[in-house]
Design a protein around this nucleic acid. Sequence first.
DNA 1: TCGATA
DNA 2: AACGGCTTATCGA
Length: 844
Amino acid sequence: MQLKAGEDYFVLSTVYDANTNGAGIKLYDVTNKKVIYITDTYGHEPYCYSRESPQKIEALKFPDGTVKRIDTLLKSDLLNAEEINLTRIVTPTPSEVPKVRDIVGETWESRIKYHQNWIYDVQIVPGRRYWWDPKQERFIPSRSESFGLDFPKAVIDQLSQYAGLLDEFRDDFTQEIPDMPIVACDIETDSTEGQFPQASDPKFQIICICFADNEDNEIALVLDRKDIEKGTKPEDISPDIKIERFETEEALLRRCFEILKKYSIITSFNGDNFDFPYLHERAKQLKIGSLSPIKWNRRNKTCDFEQGLHLDLYRFYHNVAIRSYAFGNKYQEENLDTIAKAMLGIGKVSLDKEIFRLPEWDLIYYCSRDAKITLDLLLFENRTPLVLMFILARISRIPIDDLVRTSVSNWVRSLFYYEHRRRGHLIPNPEDIQLSKGTQASSAAIIKGKKYKGATVIDPIPGVHFNVAVLDFASLYPSIISTFNLSYETILCSHAVCRDNVVPQTKYWVCRKNRGIMADIIGFIKDVRVQWLKPESKKDTMNKEFYRILERSLKVLINASYGVFGSDRFPLYCLPVADSTTAYGRDAIERTIQKAQNLDIKVLYGDTDSIFLYQPSKDQIDEIIQWSQRDLGVGLEMEKVYRYVVLSERKKNYFGVYPDSSVDVKGLMGKKRNTPLFLQEAFKQVLRILSHVNSNEEFEQAKKDVKDLVRYIYKKLEKRTYTKEDLAITIQLTQPLSRYKVRAPHVKAAQQLEKSYQEQYKAKHSGKKPTTSIIKAGQLIRFIKTRSTDRVTALELMTDNSQIDVKAYTSMVDSIFEQLFGALDIDVVELATGQVNLMEFFGS
DNA sequence: TCGATA
DNA sequence: AACGGCTTATCGA
């Protein structure tokens, strides 16, 4: 046993250990600064439940070695609000559980992965610190160092209704994240013309492997290739990079494995699908497979290490919840270059030829940059992403490497399962919930094809409005779930006395006798965020940054926790809960509007959880906020004040100017990524002109300036002085090219590109067709509107500027500015015929 | 012109 | 592989 008495370990991950048919645990050894791998010391056994009696189960014919033991135990069944005797079927190894399920028929908790089950039963929290007690052979929670933060006394008092949860989760928020040896790795392979190296067919040798670690070491391993020139050392390559040359690929790989084994955390960009499977397969081909620390799971498409923890950043940054809530949609595409540019301000090295033709120095430069930016994407801003991973893993009770690879619904599911197990509740099967609560919505969706009705959006009052206050409900849906006690067992409960506790606008009612489990968990996390973290993150203290990370990670979880109840793929799917959440939301915003109008405040607009009030007094705002907390039970806050806001007649389309003249644009096309650059620029110019307006009078001058600008754009279009890059429209190809049924403009452009590539390839390779396509799903396609038969031309194939379809572009200008001018009372047709005033334009 | 698709 | 609501452009019948 490698564990030492009394020493501290961070639990990083649990896995299924195929040798012992039990749990394997990856621990970070704080004293020796390395990862150790042990197998289960708790003697945990795999099992599932049946509601049949033990006698009935024993009478079933199980093949030999399928069942180890049958016993009974008491659990609570939340759906039926009763204690039940369950028959537990214990199996020799986890792989017998599905066999038992097939024979028994209806079983419970049989579809939970074993390594997760182990966490829920043993109640060991991934990401947390423990010390080893050899007498009990147990891990004991370690109350050691912390970030130096803890819940303030006042907040603990406010969270007193959640006593059990506060004790259980307190360390998740406050415990430090260890300082571990971390390395990023990237490989480059040889190739031939027009071929992409693929992990499924690793036929090319590996020519370069680069590492960057968190102690500022950079290493490049290069294969000596006689036919490749050395080139010259690039100027801005890292001066301390250590270069090691190898005569053979085998020697290169041996050294690579040696390095990888030294680190506790190995990070990569797409290492699960390319770098590590490729490395592993090449090692096998060279008969040194036994030296490889890589464990490739082809079915799960994952690569893990025997000791170290692999964090694949491609998977993490791809995650929708991370992209939108944690990083605010900063990057639009999920490739290393785009993400690194958005997050770090530095991208990949751009190449002028194929990788296999690069001189050695250029190859090292390219590969080492990839390793370095990969490392930085895990550690930037004081380790923000790594801290995010640790804290989310702790709260959702999910191994850190699993957290990085899976989507938010898995995190929420894991958190809910853990709490069921901890409280002694049976985890219901999806059918149990559906049978008990029904599958029919009480509301009718507005949009065809949706299952239930969502939020209320008020018709805006178009025009320019000065001094507007925007109030919004903080975390509306999580607040509603908590305040109104929504959970799969409390909605449509069986108590007669609860029947009159109705959900507005529906035929549902909610239990008032028992606290719902989902309401309790979501309410707790929401309150930790609202009561503690949000106020702290606004204070100007040393720990501000940490509070911000923590606050953002909790936002990710609670925002998703409403959504999963409305997703029929979620195992605790409960449509009445989702349906009720939005119904309470509609009720809240509609009643708040009514309240404002009763106070004689003009309501200009409202969307889901916000209302725009025209020139309210401080007293009026205070009264609405107090009323909301008291009568609705939901917290309302003053979110922002606009010096003025311009509303169009369309919903979700407006812009506002803050007192400091900064501009807040919502929904307007000028901001969207598919809008050509020249229009995005023009749009920014217009906003700049409008942002300096202070009064109705100043608007007249601003309108004139805007008119001049638009006329100038018309002229420039007609003279074709914009570059093709300025005019390019960018649309993402969301499916593989072959799957499109419609020949939409971006599909046509993608087809043009593919055709031209095939022709070029054939010309070079005596008529042979290329084996791979250059067009992939998810790619952004850029095209120009032209007078060709397709009406569009891919940007890369655009040669003749006279082909530009000027009319198409002027009508785009019209429609984009119409959104603005509709509200500003400027006539677009008038613009087209007016005179150009260049002097005034350049002067602005 | 209108529903479907993006 | 969390939800629904809203806007715009274009296709194809």
